[in-house]
Design a protein around this nucleic acid. Structure first.
Lengths: 205, 205
DNA sequence: CGCAAAGTTGCGGCTTCTGCAACTTTATCT
DNA sequence: AGATAAAGTTGCAGAAGCCGCAACTTTGCG
């Protein structure tokens, strides 16, 4: 059979743990949620929790290999001769759509991340890994050496920053309006230069 | 007396712990260095360690309130009507000079940060705090609402990213050439737009 | 059915980190 | 100087995170 019972059970346990972690953290403080409680809620032993996540924070933030792979895969799928910033914008827009399609859990997650810096740190660690790999790819496309030229790492860093900032502002705006608009605004600024000009202004919500 | 014995001793202990943490981490793996060993090397009890640093990583990375305050103070000292990106560039250049004046410890520190992601995470957490406060100040200067407009957070995020990237590339280049040049390159790119053009290229080392 | 691979669990152990209370050192006031 | 207050250090106890290991159970497959 293509998808064994084994794989399915593993995926179910993973999701059960992530969901339990998220909802428990939402009800109490994340700091007051123990691994034991999460494992209990997912019907699994505390020891097993650590077979799936390397920390409590990772479970709450929902660090899934799938996501970072998706970002990188999207980038690899863009045409090779597309300008780096355009390719990255497309990747980020696709990621935003994917996140919004995920439902309410994603909103809860990011509300928690904004309130508790231990979670923000976990997210940052995840972003850092994505950044590292995207920088490699941008370097390959541009023919630049990432150890000599700042451009590849700089454009990727700005890109990830734009995603993060857009999400934060969108949450701050109570999710009124499209996240994609904010992302486009951010990339327009990055593309035209970060000098403050009259093209920058708070688009009405 | 202006500077009491108390203050001096505290500063000495702080520095002794930071130095011990850095050098022990440099000799062994950071993961294999325990708080107990650091405290011993600094001639202080493990319990006291936690009166100075909230984690082992913080001690190695040398999270000192002084540094982040310096960045913010520099920003506050810039003229109010200076364009945000210019003010931030000046702040980052000043920070780079300050770091280089610090001597060899700083180089060791950043070599460790690049090798071990647990330290990179600690640094990221510290950057995040700086970012938050700088964003406030940029919002004030520009009259933009950081909860409505992406610009303040975006320009600060790109700025901190530029600092990080410049330091990383400089280390990768074995510290040949001036860090300030790399920072200027990065800010030139940010100012003119992140579209790849022929103005971007690896300046000879 | 029966063996091999993979997953789960309990256990022991180390480490990080915190609150608390006792103690020592430094500052201040008369 | 001497008493008192303030600040800093330390040990202790304990919660929790995290990991390696070995036994056990479940699943996959011939």
């Amino acid at each position: 059979m293509r998808e064994g019972l084994r794989e399915r059970k593993k995926a179910e346990t993973h999701q059960a743990l992530a969901k339990a972690a998220l909802h428990l953290a939402d009800e109490l403080d994340p700091e007051r949620v123990t691994v034991e409680a999460i494992a209990d809620a997912a019907g699994v032993s505390p020891r097993t929790f650590f077979n799936y996540f390397s920390s409590k924070e990772d479970a709450i933030v929902g660090i899934a290999p799938a996501h970072s792979s998706a970002l990188l895969a999207d980038l690899l799928a863009r045409p090779d001769d597309e300008p780096p910033l355009d390719a990255l914008r497309a990747v980020v827009l696709a990621a935003a759509e994917r996140l919004q399609a995920g439902g309410d859990d994603w909103v809860i997650r990011h509300r928690l991340i904004q309130k508790h810096q231990s979670l923000a740190i976990s997210r940052a660690a995840w972003f850092a890994e994505v950044e590292r790999r995207m920088t490699e790819e941008i370097a390959r496309r541009t023919g630049l050496d990432p150890g000599l030229d700042v451009y590849p790492a700089l454009v990727v860093s700005a890109t990830i920053g734009a995603l993060r900032v857009a999400i934060d502002v969108w949450q701050e705006r109570k999710r009124v309006g499209a996240l994609e608009t904010l992302i486009d605004d951010a990339f327009d600024v990055l593309a035209h230069g970060l000098r403050l000009s009259d093209t920058v202004g708070n688009h009405a919500v």
